[in-house]
Measured scan of single mutants.
Amino acid sequence: MTSCHIAEEHIQKVAIFGGTHGNELTGVFLVKHWLENGAEIQRTGLEVKPFITNPRAVKKCTRYIDCDLNRIFDLENLGKKMSEDLPYEVRRAQEINHLFGPKDSEDSYDIIFDLHNTTSNMGCTLILEDSRNNFLIQMFHYIKTSLAPLPCYVYLIEHPSLKYATTRSIAKYPVGIEVGPQPQGVLRADILDQMRKMIKHALDFIHHFNEGKEFPPCAIEVYKIIEKVDYPRDENGEIAAIIHPNLQDQDWKPLHPGDPMFLTLDGKTIPLGGDCTVYPVFVNEAAYYEKKEAFAKTTKLTLNAKSIRCCLH
Rank of each mutant, 00 (worst) to 15 (best):
F140S: 06
F140D: 04
K291S: 10
A165K: 15
Q182L: 08
C152D: 04
Q194S: 10
G273V: 10
N54C: 00
Q182G: 00
Y88R: 06
D107N: 13
H10T: 14
H244L: 05
F17M: 09
E40C: 02
H207N: 11
I199Q: 01
P149I: 04
I243T: 00
D249W: 00
I199A: 03
H208N: 12
D266Y: 00
F100D: 05
R71E: 14
L187T: 07
T166A: 13
S3I: 07
I308P: 04
G185L: 00
A165M: 10
K228F: 10
Q12D: 14
N133Q: 04
I143E: 01
C311D: 13
P102I: 09
C61D: 08
D259P: 03
R196P: 06
L301G: 06
G237R: 02
L147P: 00
D204W: 01
E285S: 14
F215W: 06
P254W: 03
H10Q: 15
K253Q: 12
D66F: 05
I16D: 03
G18Q: 05
E106D: 13
L265Q: 08
G101R: 07
L69W: 07
A287C: 13
F17Q: 03
L247M: 09
F262H: 02
Y223M: 01
I225F: 15
F100V: 06
L35M: 14
I199D: 06
A7F: 15
R132D: 13
E211R: 12
L128K: 05
I226V: 11
R43K: 06
I170C: 11
L192C: 12
D275F: 07
A241C: 07
A15C: 03
R71P: 09
V222S: 00
D190N: 09
A171S: 10
S108Y: 10
N37W: 05
F51Y: 13
G185E: 05
V179A: 07
Y223F: 12
V278G: 03
D68K: 02
A286Y: 08
V281C: 15
H159A: 12
K80G: 13
S161T: 13
W34N: 04
P271C: 13
C67Q: 13
H201D: 03
L203E: 03
L69A: 07
P245E: 01
A171P: 02
K306S: 13
F140P: 05
V283E: 04
L312M: 12
H141N: 14
Q42L: 08
P245T: 00
H244Q: 06
T62L: 12
I199G: 01
N117S: 14
P87Y: 02
E76T: 12
I11Q: 01
K144A: 11
F135Y: 07
T264I: 04
G274I: 02
E221W: 02
K81A: 14
Q12N: 15
E235C: 10
T125V: 11
C61Y: 10
D266K: 08
F29Y: 15
D234E: 07
K144C: 10
T119L: 03
N236I: 07
A202D: 06
L150G: 06
H201S: 10
H207L: 11
P181R: 02
H244D: 02
M261Q: 06
Q248T: 07
I72G: 12
L303T: 05
A93S: 11
Y153P: 06
K200A: 10
D130R: 03
K197Y: 07
T119R: 06
E129D: 14
I72V: 14
A7Q: 14
D114N: 02
G27Q: 00
F295G: 05
H116G: 11
H201M: 06
E158C: 00
N246R: 12
T62D: 12
A296D: 07
R196M: 05
T62A: 14
P50L: 02
D114F: 00
T26W: 00
I191V: 12
V278P: 05
Y155F: 14
I177E: 03
C152V: 15
R309A: 08
D107F: 11
R233I: 11
M261V: 15
Y88K: 06
V48S: 00
T167H: 09
I308W: 00
E24V: 04
G267R: 05
D68C: 04
C276T: 15
V283M: 05
K32C: 01
K306R: 12
D249V: 00
V278D: 01
K60N: 12
I225V: 15
C311V: 15
K306N: 12
G274K: 01
G185I: 02
E24R: 01
P87A: 13
V281R: 03
L35R: 09
F205H: 06
N134A: 12
F209R: 01
R233M: 10
P271K: 11
G19P: 00
P245D: 00
T299K: 13
S105D: 12
S120C: 12
Q182I: 09
E8W: 08
E129Y: 08
K297G: 00
K13S: 08
P217E: 12
Q248A: 07
N70R: 08
A165N: 15
E227H: 03
L78H: 10
N210I: 06
T62S: 13
S105L: 11
I16C: 02
Q12T: 09
V186D: 03
E9F: 07
I52A: 00
K291M: 07
R63H: 08
R91A: 15
Y173A: 07
A286T: 08
N133G: 05
E235T: 10
E290T: 10
P183T: 06
K60S: 13
S131E: 11
I220V: 11
F205E: 05
A148E: 13
I127F: 11
C67N: 10
V90E: 10
R309M: 08
M261R: 06
C61T: 12
D85V: 12
D266M: 04
E40G: 03
E129M: 06
L128V: 00
G18F: 00
P181A: 00
T118Y: 00
P232T: 03
S3A: 13
N304H: 14
G237Y: 00
L272D: 03
E158N: 07
D104V: 10
L312V: 15
G273Q: 13
F51K: 02
F100R: 03
P216Y: 00
P87N: 10
I157M: 15
A286F: 07
E8K: 14
G180Y: 05
T20N: 01
Q12G: 14
K253C: 08
F113R: 02
L99N: 10
M139G: 02
H313Y: 13
A305W: 06
